[in-house]
Design a protein around this nucleic acid. Structure first.
Lengths: 125, 125
DNA sequence: CCGATACTTAAGTACATGCTTAAGTATTCG
DNA sequence: CGAATACTTAAGCATGTACTTAAGTATCGG
C-alpha cells in the first residue's frame, strides 16, 4: 500500500493547497462534505456576502475541489473527493518517505554487524 | 477504521494549512521528508536567501510541522510527521463523510421499497 | 408583467505575505 | 586573535487576498 496513484502536477497541488489555506473555504468544504449546497446557503452559514462566496467558489472550482452547476437561478456546489484524495496523497507520500527512512535507520542501528562506515549522504554535517 | 485520532483544534488546522499553502515551504517539507537539513542547505536548494528560509522555518515551526535545533552555529530542521498526519486526518474526515453519504444515497436508491417521501433535509431546494 | 429572489460583476480598500538588502551576533578554525 | 561561516534581525517593498458596497442580470411566483 505504498502508492496507488500518480502525484498531481505541481500546479494542481499548488492550487489545492492554496484553496484549502483559507478558513472560509475550508468551512465550505466541510459543509459540502455533507452534500451539495447553494451559494445563498453557504453565505448564510459563513455570514459573509454572496459576492464573497462566489469569489471563494471560483478558487475552489479552479482547484478542482468543487464543481458547480446552475439550475434555474440557483447555483449548486458539489465537493469533488478525488481532489481531496490527491491532497491526501501528497501528504501521505512525504509522511511515508519519512517513515521508510526512519525504519531503515532503526534497522541500521539494530543491525548486529557494523560494516561499511562510509556516510552515503550528509545529514549531520 | 473510521477515526483513530481526535481532530486537531481549528487554530492548529489553520496554522497547518497556512504553512503548507506556500510552494517554498512545501519544498522544504519535501526535502525534510528525506531527513533533517540545515538552513543553508535549504536556502541553496530553494535558491532563496538565508533570511527567507529563516522566515519560512518560523511559519513551519509555529504550525508544528517542523522542529529545529541549533548545534554550534548550524540550525537543523526536522520534520514532524505527526503534524502531517493531522492534516491528512482533516482531509480524510471530510472525504469519508462524503463517501458515507454517497453510500447511504446509493443504498436508498437501490432499496426496493420506496417508502416515506418526506424530504428530511434541503439539498435540491 | 412586476416584485422578489438568487446570483453576478466591478471597484475599492485594508491587510497579510514573501522576498530582498543590510547590518548585526555567535562559532569554528588556523 | 582574526577571518570565514552560519545564521539572525530589522526594514522596506511589491503583490496578493479577502472583504465590502453598489449596480447589474436572470429566473420564479402570483
Amino acid at each position: 500500500m505504498l502508492k496507488y496513484s500518480d502525484d498531481a502536477s505541481p500546479a494542481q497541488v499548488d492550487a489545492l493547497f492554496h484553496a484549502l489555506a483559507d478558513a472560509s473555504r475550508r468551512s465550505m468544504v466541510d459543509r459540502l462534505s455533507r452534500g451539495p449546497a447553494s451559494v445563498t446557503e453557504l453565505a448564510t452559514l459563513l455570514t459573509i456576502t454572496l459576492a464573497a462566496v462566489v469569489q471563494h467558489l471560483k478558487v475552489l472550482e479552479s482547484s478542482g475541489l468543487v464543481t458547480t452547476e446552475k439550475v434555474g437561478r440557483v447555483r449548486s456546489a458539489t465537493l469533488r473527493t478525488a481532489a481531496l484524495a490527491s491532497v491526501e496523497a501528497w501528504i501521505a507520500d512525504r509522511r511515508v518517505t519519512w517513515e521508510r527512512r526512519y525504519d531503515r535507520l532503526g534497522a541500521f542501528l539494530d543491525s548486529p554487524t557494523p560494516q561499511d562506515p562510509s556516510t552515503p549522504q550528509g545529514e549531520t554535517a
